[in-house]
Design a protein around this nucleic acid. Structure first.
Lengths: 205, 205
DNA sequence: TGGAAAACATGACGATCAGCATGTAAGTTC
DNA sequence: GAACTTACATGCTGATCGTCATGTTTTCCA
């Protein structure tokens, strides 16, 4: 064992808490929302049911916390990769690629599970909405810095179109659609986006 | 009562069967996949648990049948509205509108529930894939007839881009995103699509 | 260093679910 | 119209879930 030595209370708390939240995400990815059970979460986190009870009063609260945990992770991941982007046309294409990899990863898979479940669960929905909106805004800011020469309105349009297209493609990927076709579609969209970008920057309306 | 009179066996069978499948769809829309239970389905269909047992050996089989039932309904709905479309640029815009209304309705909501659930359920997945692919192909054929002047490759690209974008927007709508922004994005996409269509038809590469 | 408090484990309880065994009614066939 | 099959109802059972009451270990503080 590495270190079962002295752990401060705050350390213990934070450690099992993140273990539980990570285990929750793992369950969502591997089993889906419907079959994600507290028992399985506890088993994966290596703790007992009493622990989750101590940290979260109910399963719904655990899920709400998982939403935040998940969004924080996604935000960090996106910020790290979006930070170092070239500007101009190639930057637009690169940004689209990054958005795709971000929205097609395991983290986003878990988000989708929670998202769909939240449609019929007002409590979960209330937990998701503000966090997700904040993530969208933050990502948007990063992206608009890349395409700074574009009028903000059009940059925002391109961003949201890309996000929604990417989410649709991610859904297709989750069910095992043709990866080759997804690649083609993404390439086509990049071509279109770059074209629109150049049109708007060289000949402003 | 209208008619509790003589019903042939085939009539009885088909009647309760569709009642069960419709009830299943209703449950998926109202409660989501996770909380869709056979008891609730039976209650909505007005039959007992024995009935569903008689028609479907297991819950999974019911869900698989619901997929087909659902896809058939969607196909009919789309075919009815896509049949009478103008061709040319205005036809492209109209087709996008129709795809959006088709993919954002309650039927597609139920499909999404099953889709996401199928990601972690190989059995359900195996039931969905061929049916969904067939629906996609059929819809594609209708659409390509509208934009017949376009090279088939590009028409197909535009179609799948629209479908995936629409699915992403539908997800956004399910969680209660801003309807106004969705409208704007859809209008923007229509503008882009029409532009691409005109470029390709007036100046073929 | 000893006691309070926080973190966590254990076991049990009520509710609910899917599946099955068995009974009953409606339709078919001869 | 009587035997037979199909369609459906009723009641039960084992399993599993989320939650809770209570016990045990670890850290903290004075």
């Amino acid at each position: 064992m590495t270190e079962t030595a002295h752990r401060t209370q705050a350390q213990r708390r934070e450690q099992t808490r993140t273990a539980l939240l990570d285990a929750t995400i793992g369950c969502l990815v591997d089993l889906g929302y419907a079959r994600t059970t507290v028992q399985e979460i506890c088993a994966r986190a290596g703790v007992s049911k009493g622990a989750v009870q101590h940290h979260f009063t109910a399963k719904a609260e655990l899920m709400a916390a998982a939403v935040e945990h998940l969004t924080t992770k996604l935000r960090l991941q996106l910020a790290a990769s979006l930070g170092k982007l070239p500007s101009g046309g190639t930057g637009v294409a690169a940004a689209i690629d990054l958005l795709w990899t971000g929205y097609s990863g395991t983290l986003s898979t878990a988000v989708t599970e929670l998202w769909v479940a939240a449609r019929t669960d007002p409590e979960l929905r209330a937990a998701i909405r503000p966090v997700d909106r904040a993530l969208g805004r933050a990502t948007l800011e990063h992206v608009t810095q890349v395409a700074g020469e574009l009028p903000p309105e059009r940059a925002e349009m391109l961003f949201w179109l890309t996000v929604n297209l990417t989410r649709g493609l991610a859904l297709d990927a989750e069910l095992g659609g043709d990866p080759k076709r997804r690649r083609q579609l993404l390439e086509e969209w990049k071509r279109i986006a770059v074209l629109l970008y150049q049109d708007a920057t060289t000949a402003p309306a």
